[in-house]
Each structure stands twice: as structure tokens, then as C-alpha cells.
């Protein structure tokens, strides 16, 4: 086992993905099925929120992954800018639509949950607003990737956008907090036992979160592999035109 940077070689990366992807995808499906069925059918109803609380098994993991996907893109962008590993740039590119979809799922399930709880589909609550802004950042990032023809330039520019965007996303989060104190309940998960959801809800939730993480990894691996192949095709076509 050499250094982790060996996987920055596209060929090595693809070979590894070919081997691991079935396991990751299988595990993702397994934990999602177990977690969701456990959560939906084998947990008691909350004494205040009734059965609506069960949407937590989609809402919380997708919201977590919406943020984690951006974090992963940030790290990948930094790796690209510092070490210039193409796989890293393409992984960031591959993660963006997945993260955007996670954001949409979090927003939609939040709206569906909010309707019975707060009596409204949407409120300009800080958390909701921050997620909407995060979604806009994803859109801009994806659009910039799509708009630039040269792959390396696109990777460079989107990496800088990702870094600058992260700073502004954090700024926006605090600005939004300042602007409106909200309806949203505190974090569902925290290290403080008092604050936490009860254990009966907690365990299936952890399984669901693991499932979403694995799903995200599987999708990003798959999409990165596709991006590498697409990139190779473009390079070969360009070369053919040249000679």
C-alpha cells in the first residue's frame, strides 16, 4: 500500500472504482432499505408530532449530505489547486449535482414536514433560507463548469469559485441568522444528550445517515469515473483533429 496520491492517477483510480463500486453501492442500498423500513414502520409515533416526524429519516440525512457534499467539493478543489490532480477536480465536478439534489430533497422534505407542523410550506427561517442560498451556490458552480470549454481552465475557475463561495456561504449563514430568528427546531443530532432525539428514533436515523453517506460516495465514484472517461474521449478527439 503506497501513498493515497497513487489514486490520483486516473487509470489506477478507475481500476479501483471498478473493484469497490459494487460493494459501496450494495452497502448503500442495504443500509437505506434497512434504515428507512425500520424508521418508517418500526418506530413509535412522536407524542407531539405524530407520524409526521418520520420524514426525519429523509430530511436529516439529505440535509447533512447537502452540506458535506459542498465540504467535499471544497477539499477536492483545494487538492486540485495545490497538487493539480485531475481526479480531484473531476470528483468535485461529479459531486456538485449530487449535492444539489440532496439540497432539493432537504428543502422538499422540509416543506412537507413544515406544512403540518408550522402550518406553512415555506417560511423565511434562517435554516431554510441558508439551504436555499446553498442551492443557488450549487447552481452557479454547475453552470460555470458547463460554460467553459477548456477542462483545466474550468477546473481552476470552479475551484476558486468553490473557495470564495464557501466563505460567502458561511457569511450568508450568519447574516441570515442575524436577519431572522427562526421557527426551525434545534439540531436533531448533537453530542448533548438532553438535546438529542430519543434513542428509538436515533438508531434508525444513524443507519439512514450511513446509507446516505454510502449512496453519496457511490454516486460520486460512479460519476467521477464517467467524467474521466468523457474527458479522455474529448482529449482523444481533440488530438485527432490536430493531426
Amino acid at each position: 500500500m503506497g501513498s493515497i496520491w497513487e489514486y490520483a492517477n486516473p487509470k489506477k483510480f478507475i481500476a479501483t472504482v471498478d473493484r469497490v463500486l459494487p460493494f459501496v453501492a450494495g452497502l448503500a442500498v442495504l443500509s437505506l432499505v434497512v434504515g428507512l423500513i425500520w424508521g418508517f414502520f418500526f418506530t413509535p409515533e412522536d407524542y407531539r408530532q405524530g407520524s409526521t416526524v418520520k420524514i426525519i429519516y429523509l430530511h436529516v440525512p439529505s440535509a447533512l449530505m447537502a452540506i458535506n457534499a459542498w465540504m467535499m467539493m471544497l477539499v477536492a478543489s483545494l487538492v486540485w489547486l495545490i497538487r493539480r490532480h485531475h481526479v480531484s477536480a473531476l470528483a468535485a465536478r461529479a459531486a456538485a449535482p449530487v449535492g444539489a439534489v440532496m439540497t432539493v430533497i432537504a428543502l422538499l422534505t422540509g416543506a412537507i414536514w413544515g406544512q403540518p407542523m408550522w402550518g406553512t410550506w415555506w417560511a423565511w427561517d434562517p435554516r431554510l433560507t441558508s439551504f436555499l442560498i446553498l442551492f443557488l451556490f450549487y447552481l452557479g458552480y454547475i453552470a460555470l463548469w458547463a460554460a467553459i470549454e477548456n477542462d483545466d481552465t474550468a477546473a481552476d475557475l470552479t475551484s476558486v469559485l468553490c473557495i470564495v463561495g464557501s466563505v460567502f456561504a458561511v457569511l450568508s449563514r450568519y447574516a441570515v441568522n442575524f436577519w431572522n430568528q427562526g421557527l426551525h427546531q434545534g439540531a436533531s443530532l448533537s453530542l448533548d444528550k438532553e438535546e438529542n432525539v430519543a434513542d428509538v428514533f436515533y438508531h434508525p436515523l444513524l443507519v439512514c445517515i450511513a446509507g446516505f453517506i454510502l449512496l453519496f460516495i457511490a454516486l460520486v465514484l460512479l460519476r467521477t469515473r464517467t467524467e474521466i472517461r468523457a474527458r479522455r474521449t474529448r482529449a482523444l478527439l481533440a488530438r485527432e483533429r490536430m493531426t
Binding site: N9, P10, K11, H86, I228, R231, R232, R234, A235, L236, R239, M242, T243
Partner: peptide, 12 residues
């Protein structure tokens, strides 16, 4: 010349 390197990927 369009040289193909065995070590690395020609697309990168």
C-alpha cells in the same frame, strides 16, 4: 507528436 504514455493518461 501524438505520443501515448503507458505510465500516465494521455488525457491529462
Amino acid at each position: 507528436r501524438a505520443s501515448v504514455s503507458r505510465q500516465y493518461d494521455e488525457a491529462f
